[in-house]
Design a protein around this nucleic acid. Structure first.
Lengths: 193, 193
DNA sequence: CGTCTATTTGAATGTACTCAAAAGCGGTGG
DNA sequence: CCACCGCTTTTGAGTACATTCAAATAGACG
């Protein structure tokens, strides 16, 4: 099993010795999923956090009328879960599925709780991860509040150029909080510039 | 000095012994600020994280045309900082000021880094705090994407009833991402129901 | 090639904004 | 104690940004 990517990811914030690496990797479950596979359904328990080794996932919220609001795209080298459901052991609010054939490493909630105790460095790792996630979401709130749809799209292009190549536009529209039709209008204006 | 509130806050997630309490509290700076005092200005370094002991603060983003977007209200028993600026030691994106006479406990970035080393339990404390903040912001993104202004206001009323009593409506409008004029319209409709 | 889904187009509509002005409210000084 | 000032909130008219709905076009995949 090739743990290279995930270990490199972890080493961005903490340094593990050999035995810690062995312990950590022994708790990971490797998973291959085809495109369009449902990984978490709203209302279900969310026991795992997933590291996307290759491929791409999408997390979204479904309202009463089944309108999708895309919360995040998790391309390779991202971690994804319904954090609230995972941490609080509550039914999921989010739905997560794959938008490409993907390979994942999953960590169970129980294993993570053990990991915090056996290798306290992981408290630090996940603190930093949570910090970064918090800052990113806060920035997104600011941008949703203060920018027009057009500006949000231009910013998205700059920030996540890889995503545009790999994800249907309607999902990007949903992430930006607009309809696919209106995104199409925005894109047309941009080209003619 | 009365550390009761902040110690109770910390004890929600970790348990400290006497010496740890002494060390922690010795690093806190007590601060009294009058209403409308500027605590952090966009562009400035943000060296501290503040615990609001009594009173209320407001954190907001100012765009190029000086439009305010309120990011959060920090009433008593909340922590507040420009997390990105604080953690990354970058110039602040946010502005923070007081909306009531307030008393704060502040912790310097350097002291916090030391605290993580001397009392590693605080890694856990701040991990949980970051987790909660992340989940809250993510929920806010969902709600901004999927709900009408009216629904967002009704939800805000339910979730933060104390805030309405203490904060000018124009700031709440800004938090909700609408103009004060439009909030006024929403409120009128609500009353006549 | 045919089917299914994604994207584009356009017309009609709606939600929320801008601007201007009036009304309300709170504090301060005469 | 009341009058005035500054700031907040309300009102209304006109407008802009984004949506809905319906239909045409384009792409992807078996």
């Amino acid at each position: 099993m090739d743990f290279n990517n995930i270990l490199k990811n972890v080493s961005k914030h903490i340094t593990l010795d050999k035995s810690e690496i062995d312990y950590f990797t022994s708790k990971l479950t490797y998973l291959e999923v085809p495109k369009k596979k449902l990984l978490l359904k709203e209302g279900q328990p969310c026991n795992v956090i997933s590291y996307v080794n290759t491929g791409a996932l999408r997390a979204y919220y479904l309202d009463q009328q089944d309108n999708e609001s895309v919360i995040m795209f998790a391309l390779n080298d991202w971690w994804v879960t319904d954090m609230h459901a995972f941490v609080m052991e509550q039914p999921a609010l989010l739905t997560i599925d794959s938008i490409e054939d993907s390979t994942l490493f999953q960590l169970q909630k129980k294993e993570l709780d053990q990991l915090y105790i056996k290798v306290p460095k992981f408290e630090r790792f996940f603190r930093i991860m949570m910090q970064n996630s918090y800052v990113r979401e806060q920035l997104r709130v600011v941008q949703n509040l203060s920018l027009s749809a057009d500006d949000r799209y231009q910013l998205f292009l700059k920030k996540y150029p890889q995503v545009i190549q790999r994800v249907p536009l309607k999902h990007i529209a949903s992430y930006l909080g607009i309809t696919p039709e209106f995104l199409s209008v925005i894109r047309k204006k941009g080209i003619s510039k």
